[in-house]
Design a protein around this nucleic acid. Structure first.
Length: 722
RNA sequence: GGGCGUUUAGUUUAGUGGUAAAACGUCACAUUGACAUUGUGAAGACCGCAGGUUCGAUCCCUGCAACGCCCACCA
């Protein structure tokens, strides 16, 4: 019996969730209507939240959408799997644990690698499952029995196997690259991991013999290996290809006395040079600038490293060695000025790259890295979408995806941090390279018993770990046991936000094709971003973040799910908490309507076909046809990812067609002996149909009402037949 | 700089080649009913700006502006 309202989500939700989870029906293998090989499957791989993460609005939206799809298909009799897991999030997690250590007055270098990794695991055991508890509060029907963590031994094995397989195919190589190095995190960062900030700087006009070069980084001059001009720049045409002796400052002597020196620089012509900027001449410092590195590659210029991994000037800079770049810049400028080699200074706003994690300024430095050749892999991913093996919705994102793949560079997959999947690469401990400078290493899952090179050393594993995206790109199959691979790969839909379309989705597609020979999912749905009410991004640093748990704990998960879907149009959501209140009122409305129906009818949940309602009055006819129409359009909208539209349709149908009109008319029809029985049937069957239709969106209140209604052989609305 | 997108009532959003809907908010009236109320109704939009195509444009095209995102560049 439905108790007198108002509906109390806070009392209902936790109990119901426990009951669902204990029932085992989140596990598709237990679904009574989806037994056997012929059962259709619906599979969603949850975008892995970081172990360091706490629930935010993005998770709420993302997981609500996925849960709608999974619950809908489960009701439709599909063998529905919603696969949860967490990402070890290399840099992010290492950063968090290092902050903890700092509070304890220690750091990872004091502990050593092994001890540090132990600490990270301890941290993970303590805090890493918080996100799961929070996701449960949203009410998502993920199969927790299959939960995976990307550092689990089985997952890790798939990661190293993928590396070995790529290596066998000749797709992995080692090379020196000017990488974006974070001196604080001691790691290289991909371009995608950089952030930028505007910073006031000075543009110095330095004399290079007869040339003047504008630069904001005079201290890198010791790493210069050329000067470059635009090939169409008439002013400098005569110098192109020549090697000139140029007067500059020396690294010798003492810091007190600036000294002159003569250096030799080649003049090259390259399109990367903008003839309108500064003087149209740039100094090329391949070791400490990514553009310069590319110019150097085109003109085979040497690479001179003058800044080390800690962001300090190295021994090649003589008397400047040991200074950090900022101090060195001041000193070099002073010395150049003393010798009259700086002719002009201009204020300049400079966009500097900063580490996305710790915000430290990035220092480009040369470093030995591992690369994955992208050519064939990118082509395969491109083809998958072109040939519609995977479709992207909304379709405009296809272009973003294709553009990225068409202009892709090889992927730097190595990272110099400690927390992650260590490369399955074993070096000879005696000699890192042979006479021909060929590096001596073995790629293998296990440490070789005997070194094939020196025959006597204990081989050393590469200290590098893999980019976190390398492992998360394998999620659709590395997240599954061998047994499950046959049943649950590939997936049906991948739901994510646009910012990781390329970072993650494209990489999952080529990884899946490479390892499993099949695209990992048939459809990709890109949803919008939840913004603050004023249109700004929600972020902790801006103070614009809103904790969805606040609403869940106050208004209930259903109301919160309602709010986020209700507001989700074809674009970003400007979060308005009024929608949560609307959702809560809607719960209450349904609760009370159900109560009315139960009081005025027997409201038995009969699944027998004998109680098929018939339209005897025009009101009957209207509500029954409205129900049919609603069912059809909701189904169509869910299939086409138009969740908000489906929810609006359901809301309008229930509140207006059903409650405002039919329920009011039914009060008269229930007093008519000729109509009473049929009206009762219409009321209770329409309610039940509606509960099923709404269940994917608002699972708790619908299940709660279902549980209160009398009926035989009743289990859960969650597994009813829609 | 290149690309993609967005711009519709106070707010958040739908939508259509024939001058526009909804929810919330506001206001008025009714109501104690299954409903911490609910119902009925009202006010409120030159559909970003300027051109063009068309008998007709909010919708199609072009340009501009603002905002957002992605990519590139930033010596």
């Amino acid at each position: 019996m439905i108790p007198e309202g108002p509906y109390d989500p806070l009392k209902t939700e936790p109990t119901l969730y426990d009951a669902w989870e204990r029932s085992g029906y989140f596990n598709p293998d237990n679904l009574p209507r989806a037994k056997g090989k012929r059962a259709k499957k619906y599979i969603v791989y949850m975008p892995l939240p970081n172990v360091t993460g706490t629930l935010h609005m993005g998770h709420l939206l993302n997981n609500t959408i996925q849960d709608i799809l999974v619950r809908y298909h489960r009701l439709r009799g599909f063998r529905a799997l919603y696969l949860p897991g967490t990402d070890h999030a290399g840099i992010a997690t290492q950063y968090v644990v290092e902050k903890e250590l700092k509070k304890q007055g220690t750091n990872r270098f004091v502990l050593g690698r092994e001890e540090f990794i132990k600490k990270v695991w301890e941290w993970k055991e303590q805090y890493g499952n918080l996100i799961y508890a929070q996701l449960r509060k949203i009410g998502i029907s993920a199969d927790w029995s299959r939960t995976r963590f990307t550092m689990d031994p089985t997952y890790a094995k798939d990661v190293t196997n993928a590396f070995i397989a790529y290596h066998k195919k000749g797709l992995i190589y080692r090379g020196v690259r000017t990488v974006n190095w974070c001196p604080r995190c001691q790691t290289s960062l991909s371009e995608l991991e950089l952030e930028y900030k505007e910073e006031p700087a000075t543009l110095y006009y330095m004399q290079y013999g007869s040339f003047t070069v504008a630069t904001v980084r005079p201290e890198t001059k010791f790493g210069d290996t050329a000067l470059a001009v635009n090939p169409r720049d008439a002013r400098y045409k005569q110098y192109v290809g020549k090697t000139l002796q140029i007067e500059s400052i020396s690294t010798e002597g003492t810091l007190e006395t600036p000294m002159r020196a003569t250096i030799t620089l080649k003049i090259v012509a390259d399109n990367a040079v903008d003839s309108k900027f500064g003087t149209g001449v740039i100094k090329v410092t391949p070791a400490h600038d990514s553009v310069d590195f590319q110019i150097a590659e085109r003109h085979t210029l040497p690479l001179i490293q003058i800044i080390d991994e800690r962001g300090k000037m190295n021994e090649r800079t003589g008397k400047y060695a040991g200074m950090n770049v900022i101090d060195a810049r001041k000193k070099v400028v002073d010395d150049l000025k003393a010798l009259g080699l700086i002719t002009k200074e201009e204020a300049y706003t400079h966009r500097v790259a900063i580490c996305y994690r710790c915000a430290h300024v990035i220092e480009p430095i040369p470093s030995a890295q591992w690369f994955l050749k992208m050519n064939t892999l990118a082509k395969s991913a491109l083809q998958a979408v072109t040939k519609k093996k995977t479709s992207i919705f909304p379709s405009r994102f296809e272009k973003v995806y294709k553009d990225w793949l068409a202009h892709i560079h090889d992927w730097t997959i190595s990272r110099q941090i400690w927390w992650g999947h260590q490369l399955p690469v074993w070096f000879c401990a005696h000699n890192k390279e042979d006479k021909n400078k060929k590096e001596l290493f073995v790629v293998a899952n296990k440490k070789p018993v005997r070194c094939p090179f020196c025959k006597k050393c204990t081989m050393e594993q590469s200290p590098d770990v893999l980019d976190t995206w390398f492992s998360s790109a394998l999620w659709p199959f590395a997240g599954l046991s061998k047994n499950d691979l046959n049943n649950y790969y590939p997936g049906s839909a991948l739901i994510t936000a646009r910012d990781i379309l390329n970072l993650w989705v494209a990489r999952m597609i080529f990884s899946g094709l490479s390892t499993m020979k099949k695209v990992p999912f048939a459809r990709v749905f890109i949803h919008g971003t939840v913004l603050a009410k004023d249109g700004r991004r929600m972020s902790k640093s801006l103070g614009t973040g809103i904790d969805p748990l606040m609403y869940i704990n106050k208004n209930g998960a259903d109301a919160t799910r309602f709010a986020v879907i209700w507001q989700m149009g074809g674009q970003d959501i400007r979060w308005d908490e009024a929608a949560v209140i609307a959702g809560q009122k809607f719960c209450n409305k349904i609760w009370n309507a159900a109560r009315f129906i139960q009081i005025r009818t027997d409201a038995t949940l009969s699944t027998k076909k004998t109680s098929v309602p018939r339209a005897k009055t025009s009101a009957d006819k209207k509500i029954l046809s409205a129900l049919t129409k609603t069912k059809k359009s909701v189904a169509r909208d869910i299939e086409s990812f138009a969740f908000s539209k489906a929810l609006h349709t359901l809301y309008d149908f229930f509140w207006h067609d059903f409650c405002d009109i039919y329920l009011e008319i039914s009060k008269h029809q229930l007093d008519d002996v000729k109509l009473v029985q049929n009206t009762r049937t219409i009321l209770s069957s329409t309610l039940l149909q509606f509960l099923k239709l709404l269940h994917p969106f608002m699972p708790f209140v619908t299940e709660a009402i279902y549980q209160e209604l009398p009926g035989k052989k009743k289990r859960f609305l969650m597994i009813e037949e829609l």
